[in-house]
């Protein structure tokens, strides 16, 4: 056993390790291996299958959400009115109103009515 105990000792303590190994090692190792491998051959319960999918599912959902947000945001930012629709506006105020990316200011609406 190492006589000096310090937090910086990076060497495994062989005596303590051997004692712990003897204290923790389970009996009948081959039987345990056989038990695990027999279980491997059986189909997995549904919750384990779902659990195995969850990570991929969450990643895919997050990626889809990000892509959708990006596309919607880009479409909103770059939206230009249909030229035919724009041409249908009879006055300059009406054209401004139709082309505006934001909701119209009431004064613009009122100005359009006044023009008529």
């Amino acid at each position: 056993m190492t006589p000096q105990v310090t937090p910086f000792d990076h060497r495994p303590d062989r005596a303590l390790g051997a004692a712990l190994r003897a204290a923790l090692t389970g009996a009948d190792e081959p039987a345990f291996v056989t038990r695990v491998l027999a279980r491997v051959g059986r189909p997995l319960p549904y919750w384990e299958v779902l659990a195995s999918w969850s990570r991929a599912g969450i990643t895919a959902a997050a990626a889809t959400g990000l892509i959708a947000t990006f596309l919607v945001g880009r479409a909103a930012a770059s939206s230009t009115p249909d030229p035919d629709f724009l041409a249908s506006a009879a006055t300059a105020s009406a054209r401004r109103l139709v082309a505006a990316p934001r909701p119209p200011d009431p004064s613009v609406v009122l100005a359009g009515i006044e023009d008529r």
Partner: peptide, 14 residues
């Protein structure tokens, strides 16, 4: 996978 189980089962159990 059986070989991996044999290789690590003792450590895993401890």
């Amino acid at each position: 996978f059986g070989v991996l189980v044999e290789r690590y089962s003792a450590s895993v159990r401890r």
